[in-house]
Amino acid sequence: MTNEKHVLSILVDNQPGVLSRISGLFSGRGYNIESLCVAETTDPNISRLTVVTKANQPLVEQIKKQLNKLINIIKVHELTGSKYVHRELALIKVNAKTENRAEILRIVDIFRGKIVDVGPDHYTIEVTGDEGKMEAILTLLRPIGIKEIARTGTIALFRDSK
């Protein structure tokens, strides 16, 4: 059975220690975390955690059941696949010399990114998109020279209101 990426969206009580219960579950049972995002929802008592994990099908079922077993977890949804919108935000600081500034701007334009900071020899680019788009822009920027990068990890929602 192959290990595939699974996006899990987890609604939890917004309380101290909850994140630690979840990360402890993953580390204690040897589950993998590719990325993890957490922030409040419209209800300040509830937070949404989005975890991307790599696992085969039986294992991801077990992960979901183990998560549901934690007392502070309200709901676990799997948001893998095309029925869901996935997005990630990245801040990418690249080398920007006079000779390649135009090229960078063209790439940023193609990916509908923004330059959010400029210096004598750098641009900082803000770009959002799904995983494929992130990989694509990074591939194009890499030859120019990426100085630093910060990524949020994937967040996701149902396409239909549910």
């Binding site: 101290p16 220690g17 402890g24 579950l25 204690g28 007392i71």
Partner: peptide, 14 residues
């Protein structure tokens, strides 16, 4: 102790 016993309790409280 809440941190220590997190993985071996059903639940715990401070």
């Amino acid at each position: 102790i809440v941190g220590i016993t997190r993985p071996c309790t059903k639940h715990n409280y401070l």
